[in-house]
């Protein structure tokens, strides 16, 4: 087990190095002066130039430059954003929680709705209910997320006027940034309108969460159903049934446990999909998260921001993936042998 963990850690380190080399090389791949891309300074004066060149080791080889880059990453001395001229690390720290909050609620929904429905669909695979679920699932699987978001906005916000269209909370509520997660922040804030603010924030959350949860939920439904059906074919289930247990008992005691094990693995896979879909969702709902920020950076040709954003998002995605894989292995000794 320890050996396994060590191997994973080693792989993670290897991945991070690969990613950072890639991010570093972007400084050269993007148009413009590499020094500007690395510092994020839009105008470098003649006095600054030699100092910066020395600090960034621009006159030495690529390897020295890369090591300097790595050093800056770890010491938190990141580049500035072209557009705001603010340090990128701080900027991202402000935005990241918004994305994580949205993604985690969507992930929770996809599990708590997707898994039970998937199980229901597997109980009678040829039944009407099961067919209906499959139909809805394949539709949810095929729908373009931005169009779905627009449809919901058109219906619930514009036509019915029930729900807000943008942002995390009404702009008149001033909630201090403590954890960056809106709901805990509201609870922590001393504002007199806490309950009001909570309700307001929930109303803002509703549509984006539904939109973001749609795709992973349908994936979960399909995944759980298939896993259940597979398990159903296994010989130990047949044995259990032969012993005279009824359907419910078999499902409960044997099938479920084995079918749900791979679901842990899904957390990681779903998470990476969620982060991508969150970018689009954030753009549509003006959600002040990292995805919208990254897309805006692409529009603004804000190269330092793209560079840093890619590094952070891919590292995050891969780390979460690796963690769930480890978790999966902990629960499932069989997987360790691979």
């Amino acid at each position: 087990m320890i050996l396994y963990l060590l191997r994973r850690m080693f792989l993670l380190a290897f991945v991070f190095i690969a990613l950072s080399i890639f991010a570093f090389s972007l400084g050269y791949l993007f148009p413009g002066e590499p020094l500007q891309n690395f510092t994020g300074l839009r105008h470098i004066s003649a006095e600054q130039l030699p100092l910066l060149q020395q600090e960034y080791r621009m006159e030495q080889g690529y390897i020295a430059q890369y090591l300097a880059y790595l050093g800056r990453i770890f010491s938190g001395n990141w580049a500035l954003s072209f557009s705001s001229q603010q340090p990128l690390l701080q900027e991202m720290q402000m935005l990241m929680p918004a994305t994580l909050e949205l993604a985690s609620y969507a992930l929770l929904i996809s599990f708590f709705i997707g898994i039970p429905i998937g199980i229901i669909a597997a109980i009678k695979p040829e039944g009407t209910l099961s067919k209906l679920i499959s139909a809805v699932a394949v539709a949810g699987y095929s729908i373009p997320v931005f169009w779905w978001a627009l449809l919901l906005i058109m219906l619930f916000s514009l036509a019915l006027g029930w729900l807000p269209t943008a942002g995390r909370i009404g702009v008149l509520y001033e909630i201090n940034h403590v954890t960056g997660f809106m709901l805990p922040d509201i609870l922590l804030s001393g504002t007199a309108h806490r309950q009001e603010a909570m309700l307001n924030a929930l109303r803002h959350l509703l549509l984006p969460t539904i939109v973001l949860a749609t795709f992973p939920t349908t994936v979960m439904i399909r995944f759980t159903r298939d896993a259940m059906l597979d398990v159903w074919e296994q010989s130990y289930i047949k044995t259990a049934r032969a012993k005279g247990l009824n359907r419910g008992q078999v499902l409960y005691r044997h099938a479920l446990r084995n079918a749900l094990l791979p679901v842990i693995r899904q957390i990681g896979l779903q998470f990476s999909t969620l982060i991508t879909l969150a970018m689009i969702t954030e753009v549509i709902f003006s959600w002040p998260g990292i995805g919208r920020w990254l897309i805006d950076s692409i529009y603004q040709r804000n190269y330092p921001a793209i560079q840093a954003g890619l590094l952070v998002i891919s590292t995050l995605v891969i780390t979460v993936n690796m963690l769930t894989e480890i978790l999966h292995t902990v629960f499932n000794p069989l997987a360790r042998k691979r």
Partner: peptide, 20 residues
């Protein structure tokens, strides 16, 4: 390397490439 690339969703990868 392949396993790595696989964990990044295609749209994210495409956005990265378009960004470049």
């Amino acid at each position: 390397v392949l396993d790595l690339a696989l964990t990044i969703p295609s749209l994210l990868l495409a956005i990265i490439i378009v960004a470049i």
